[in-house]
Design a protein around this nucleic acid. Sequence first.
DNA 1: ATCAGTTGGTTAAGCGCTTAACCCAACTAA
DNA 2: TTAGTTGGGTTAAGCGCTTAACCAACTGAT
Lengths: 338, 338
Amino acid sequence: MPTMKEIAKRANVSVAAVSVVLNNKKSRISKAKKAEIKQIAKDLNYHPNIAAVTLSKNISLTIGLIVPDITNPFFATLTRLIEQQLGAQGYSTLFVDSNNSFTAESDAVQNMVSRGVDGIVLVPSNEFFLSKKKERKALIEKSDKPIVLLNAYTDLKVSYVNFDNVQGAYLATQELINYGHTHIAFIRGKANFVNAAERLEGYRQALKDNRIAFNDDLVFEGDYTLDSGAKLAPKILEDPATTAILSANDLMLFGVIKWAKQNFVDIFSRVSMVGFDNDPYGEIIEVPLTTVDQQPLEMVNETIDLLLEMLTTGEKVVQHLIVKPKLIKRSSIHKIEN
Amino acid sequence: MPTMKEIAKRANVSVAAVSVVLNNKKSRISKAKKAEIKQIAKDLNYHPNIAAVTLSKNISLTIGLIVPDITNPFFATLTRLIEQQLGAQGYSTLFVDSNNSFTAESDAVQNMVSRGVDGIVLVPSNEFFLSKKKERKALIEKSDKPIVLLNAYTDLKVSYVNFDNVQGAYLATQELINYGHTHIAFIRGKANFVNAAERLEGYRQALKDNRIAFNDDLVFEGDYTLDSGAKLAPKILEDPATTAILSANDLMLFGVIKWAKQNFVDIFSRVSMVGFDNDPYGEIIEVPLTTVDQQPLEMVNETIDLLLEMLTTGEKVVQHLIVKPKLIKRSSIHKIEN
DNA sequence: ATCAGTTGGTTAAGCGCTTAACCCAACTAA
DNA sequence: TTAGTTGGGTTAAGCGCTTAACCAACTGAT
């Protein structure tokens, strides 16, 4: 790999001269020398050693991205959008799949700081929300660099971009009610998961506003995986009065459907369903799934804006942005006559 | 961020001393001093500045990973496995989604080299295969560090780990034939895509070995996206003699199914289907899909072994590893009476 | 008393790049 | 004539860490 030293030698100048011209800084180098230096750099196919730049400028043009599980399509979409948008701004992304482990998240933040990232986007895991506030705080404070949490609320002094979960669940529940459903099962996420609690809240609100009694027996706790949905399916379908299922994500609904297939129950006639996430596969199953879209593009746009602002001004701002849900109406709801 | 300098000051030693003890090098530092230094490091929550380490040792404990599209579940699975296994060995991963662009791949390699990665895993895009050999070669040669191509064959002097595509397609076709099918449509990938050509070859071989004439009209060209499958669907289903579809990936089959749903054709009765990739969603659709599993875990294991070997020995070896396919038999094939 | 070997470190150079401070010759303006 | 400005760079220090080479004091054997 060619270095500035080599260019300097060939151009008969100091490496300082090379540095300023290759960085397009205003300086007193003559036009001719500038051109010569640039030409030599091009000829040698010079590219700066980023470690050296990082060391001397204390910025790395790198950001860290931590997601709970990249095989989850929603997180994959977020990841793709973030990487591409940040890439367009010249940033590289250091990626970690935390495998839903708080310890892994914590280690990842530490490691990223150690590597001198300029900022971090953390899409927190389940465990993050289940951890003690003290530990969460410690995680955030490992980094003196800007952090923004994505797809999360938090009580910590840190920026986040989240999705309006209560509004989303409200919309979905209202839609079900509009079709005549009153016995609506709800598959929630883990109890301490804030997003999950919010979705439950939206569900309750919609019931209340429609004077339908809330029934705790209709609430089932999953963990956002397909398997947890499959495990819950028989319990949910046990009650013949249940005519609809609202799920805190599409994946758990797919789990329910999988269980139904394996047990020969005609799930689409048996119940109406609404999910969350607008999973692309929701469109190609037997009956396309009505779902709440989390607007990943909007979420990422807000995240990038926020991060870039902090990165350029150098100030750590604490802002909380909430993006609005969008109900994608497909065919998984049928009318109930009362 | 605390530095060695700070630790050195508190321990009344030189920073060289701190360096050797924190790196557990054998040295002439007394047990007591060692303990003291380590304690101070722990108290200050010291973590090395990786940029500085990289600069002086010329190794970064970072590898680059380039995939064509992280929202494709197969690539997501590869990514997850790679990141986790490499992470367990102390490596961080610099991630780029090339968005199926050769230019992006090329830039990514350049950037990664510039950042001093120790090695690169490249999962090449469609465009990679369509590019001129000279350009592909240039891309590979940008990096003096170990590269391994994953999920690809290549004519270049570089290691790769691929999947036995001809064997996979052969297995799938044979399975269809076993069930009595003789008019088997094949949805292939792009013409110049080597993997796609291999799958076509396996299909042809199986037909030939069973004395079934190869018919070019039954071969359709997609581009591995869901949409391309949807676009092809009407043409494929036009011929009433066609009783089965073999697709070069599950996603295109999902596209066919989507088109069928939207046009009210009972696709699962109409044709038998076999895909490639063992997409998790193949299991939860109306009729679970028989598919060829690419054994991502095996592929990643081989990749990591190869990369780690190069990383530790420092030698660039050129090895070509082929992992064997596994046919996952589910329910999307029915018997044909002749 | 001397010398080799051990103990317990230190010094200094270097990795590649950045940046503030400096230098000097030639030119201008009063 | 001289002070001041401008053009065209150079010098040197520093970012945090690594590593080979060095050194001084002590111990024990001869």
